[in-house]
Computed example of a mutant assay.
Amino acid sequence: MRVIASIGEALAAARGRIPASEARLLLGALLGCSTAQIAAYPERVLTPALAARFADLLERRAAGEPVAYLLGTREFFGRDFRVTPAVLIPRPETELIVELVLARVAKNDGTPRILDLGTGSGVLAVTLALELPGARLTAVDRSAEALGIARFNADALGAQVDFIESDWFAALDGEGFDFIVSNPPYIAADDPHLADGDVRFEPTGALASGPAGLDDLARIAAGAPAFLMRGGWLMMEHGYDQAALVRALLAGAGFDAVASARDLAGIERVSYGCWRAS
């Protein structure tokens, strides 16, 4: 293995194995500086300990381990959240749910009761709590380890969220919510993409949901009416080709104003409906 004694040598060792942008990101995290500084000072000397840590990160990234897990953080809605292999890596398209909620809250008193189902790292619940200081947030997940990460993020960012260990609605007491939001598992259990890229390292239970990827989406659509106030909204993220199917689930459960919203790539990514709008 090439000897690493400086930033420039570290970048050279990474060349051809991982993208240069990722190498600069990993080095910046180790050194506590920006990627621009990494690029500007290739002569900066690395201690043997730092060089060894970079070599380890390089090997792990070259083997496919996600950068977010290597760094332990991922940005969402302008904030950094802690992530580990116990939770999904937050993705930009999930921010669409936040935007949809904010657009609707602006039309009422700004103090909604919001339930986040399958909170994972807590990005939706924590973000909504911070964007809507008057809101009451409840977040559930069946994974105690995931809830630990979500609680850490809430504490670190100063968000007030009630966390409950629950398999979807099972541990809830019937409180009525103005919004129920969820980014549930929605990939088919035998989808070959589960063996590709970053998802190989993510928790399968948070990704796959039955033979068509619809099992959890169907459970949420069927169960949500018992926990929604009249005029409350259910919003669920889903796969790129599932919008029509999810709209059918919502309509079949009795929701009004059923529709889908497109992400920045133009894909119908979130479907939603209003419970007894009139």
Results as ranks from 00 to 15, higher is better:
A29N: 14
A14R: 05
A49N: 07
A62S: 13
H193G: 11
G223V: 10
H238E: 05
P90V: 05
V181H: 01
D256M: 10
G239W: 04
A86L: 13
L137V: 15
P185Q: 01
D241A: 11
L115F: 03
E43N: 02
R200C: 03
G120L: 02
G231F: 06
Y186I: 02
L245A: 15
E175H: 13
F77G: 01
L25A: 02
L132T: 08
D191I: 10
L102R: 14
D178M: 02
E95D: 10
I220L: 14
F227M: 00
A139K: 04
A188D: 04
I180D: 05
A12E: 13
R74H: 09
A63Q: 13
T138W: 05
G232T: 00
R53I: 12
N153R: 10
D155A: 15
A259C: 15
R104W: 12
S260A: 14
I38E: 03
L117Y: 08
R17F: 04
S209I: 03
R53H: 14
A257R: 15
G205F: 06
L25S: 03
V83N: 07
R82M: 13
L249W: 07
T111P: 13
P85I: 05
A125M: 11
I18G: 00
R61F: 00
G110M: 06
G223Y: 09
F152W: 15
A29H: 11
P85A: 06
V3E: 15
R113F: 06
A103G: 14
L71S: 07
F163C: 08
R230V: 04
A103H: 05
M1R: 14
W233F: 08
I18Y: 05
G158Q: 14
P192G: 11
R136P: 07
G64I: 04
R151A: 15
A212H: 11
R219W: 13
L245E: 14
G210K: 03
I149M: 08
P90R: 12
A248M: 05
A146Y: 09
L207A: 08
C274E: 11
R200E: 08
V161H: 09
T138A: 11
S121I: 11
T35C: 10
M235I: 04
I164Y: 02
G254N: 08
E237W: 04
A51R: 09
D162F: 11
G223K: 01
